[in-house]
Design a protein around this nucleic acid. Sequence first.
DNA 1: TTAATAAAGGATAAAATTGTCCTTTATTAA
DNA 2: TTAATAAAGGACAATTTTATCCTTTATTAA
Lengths: 144, 144
Amino acid sequence: MFSKSCEYGLRAVIFIAQQSHLGHKASLTSISQAVDSPPAFTAKILQQLAKNNLIDSSKGPKGGFFMAPEAMKTLTLEAVVTVLDGDSIYTNCGLGLKQCNDKKPCPLHFKFVAIKEELKAMLQNTTLIMLVNDMNLYRFHLKR
Amino acid sequence: MFSKSCEYGLRAVIFIAQQSHLGHKASLTSISQAVDSPPAFTAKILQQLAKNNLIDSSKGPKGGFFMAPEAMKTLTLEAVVTVLDGDSIYTNCGLGLKQCNDKKPCPLHFKFVAIKEELKAMLQNTTLIMLVNDMNLYRFHLKR
DNA sequence: TTAATAAAGGATAAAATTGTCCTTTATTAA
DNA sequence: TTAATAAAGGACAATTTTATCCTTTATTAA
Ligand code: FES
Ligand code: FES
């Protein structure tokens, strides 16, 4: 469904949001341990997210990755996916045709668009603060 | 969503079903032209499908790939996907956790399972004969 | 001001996926 | 029985994705 980059990125962002909610910055080491992802690879992914202003970062001791409380309320999973995997999941033809539209549909087009829309809506309607709140109510996991 | 192998395979199988419905066998050349896929690569994919008895093949002049009328009624897209991509789309965690189940769910588990179930149901409930019939009623495309 | 800490960035490396080429085997029809 | 046709199969090549390592830059605190 998503690339490894995107999977690691989503898990990392959720962890960062959780930590930021507690007023903590998250170091690369703490993140890759918390979400069980390869540190150096995760660093590249976090760089991308920081460059696109989805998360903040600061260097030096007491530095790390974090997120403003404001940002948490508006940042959606869809934004994270778009930075890391683009919008191909929503817009590409499920059968791999070069373009997907109602004019020249593949035989599964109308079935695929329904599912792709649902996925898109789910990601667009889920903000990071929602997940942080969910995780305070129920025992959700970011690894294993 | 699906691998290239799976995309080519699905398009090829739909074309083969269409041709078989007209009483024709489909050669590798005709298939890769009809669905715009690289011939040699497509050959490997069709070999896999034939080995798993999803389609039939015969060598020599007048040979090619085909499907019994019976088979068309029972063969689902899900069976094709399972041979080419396995069941990871339905069973894997959307966030990449090593196992996906209700006991140790990731924060998106319950949202993901709904979407994955819908996709699985769609593929399981779509037989090749249905698509052949659809394509006789409406102008669907297998390339461009 | 120096030492320690931590992210940023560049250069590679490993693995998986995608793709090609060529030989072998089977089948058909002349 | 021979020539032509077409799939099967093996070996290999290109590309993309995933992953690591090392150097540089910025920041903090002693
Ligand atoms: S054309 Fe295939 S999903 Fe839209
Ligand atoms: S545990 Fe993540 S989708 Fe089920």
